[in-house]
Write a protein that binds this DNA or RNA. Structure first.
Lengths: 158, 158
DNA sequence: GCCAATCTATACTTATTAGTCAAGATTACT
DNA sequence: AGTAATCTTGACTAATAAGTATAGATTGGC
């Protein structure tokens, strides 16, 4: 039960684009440098985000990426789904072949209902959060960090 | 954000052992057949569970696996941690190198705090549930399924 | 002591995910 | 039209997870 690299970096790239504001344009080199991933990898991730309808791309000179929709309409849960799939996709139950002819788990079981409970808990967080929330949160934290005195503004927080 | 095979089958094997009751003994062939995985794979998973202190093994004839502790003292969250690690292990932030010299994300960021919120939500479910809960739930569901009329007791539920 | 049933350990193969590379297509500007 | 900056695509390699195989060690019963 781990976050995939796609989910982590994909969301970061989206937040970065959100930073650029509505209509703000960023190129792959810009995004990749800002997020510390290779341009090729950023391109691969951005393609997923584009196909998911979260960003749009413009080719050619002056091209780049932009949010496809206002930040408040981008639900993080949907982004994560596109980047990394659902927690529980029932691939296990499908292939599970228990000892008894009628597997008591083929319809439902405690393990399965536990996963469902976990999925509900996760969705509860991710279906509420929008990109706008993340951006606001980020700005709050940045101003807060910048307000801390010290060599680089961070020392005292570690 | 997917369940790993280890988590899925590991938990299933543990539930299967719980079924066998306190002191109940099951061999690898028994468990593997009941759970529909190969004996070799079951062995691999059971070793993880053993090292995690959830089950104990006896070698030789009459050997097999048993719960190492009472079912109500086995917290599912701990089992999942051992089988699959934590959702967010901060491997990303560690290697992340943003554009600015002082990465505003090196201490905290909205993405990171989002993952923390998700982790809290997951823990909220998994740190409460014990193996005993799963076993009781299973028995309830089994009796319920068996009570449904039909060719194999399952038809009407699909 | 011997044998069969059992777990143990390590190495191996396969599948999936992560990440890179190179050639092609599009666009703005001159 | 030409050129440079940009995204697009698909194939490639590397790393990790999933799953298998094989030889070894332990135990109980005869």
């Amino acid at each position: 039960m781990k976050l995939s690299a796609n989910e982590e970096y994909g969301l970061r790239c989206l937040v970065r684009l959100g930073y650029a504001g509505e209509g703000g344009n960023l190129t792959i080199p810009e995004i990749s440098q800002a997020e510390g991933v290779s341009p090729a990898y950023a391109a691969k991730i951005l393609r997923v985000l584009r196909k998911g309808g979260f960003v749009k791309a413009a080719r050619g000179k002056e091209g780049g990426y932009t949010l496809a929709r206002p930040a408040e309409s981008i639900v993080i849960g949907e982004v994560i789904d596109v980047l990394g799939g659902r927690l529980f996709e029932s691939k296990f139950c499908d292939s599970h072949a228990g000892q008894v002819a009628i597997c008591t788990r083929s319809v439902d079981c405690s393990v399965r209902s536990l996963w469902r409970a976990v999925q509900v808990a996760v969705d509860h967080v991710l279906s509420k959060a929008t990109l706008r929330d993340l951006l606001q949160n980020e700005e709050e934290m940045n101003s807060w960090v910048r307000a801390i005195p010290g060599p680089n503004g961070l020392r005292l927080l570690q």
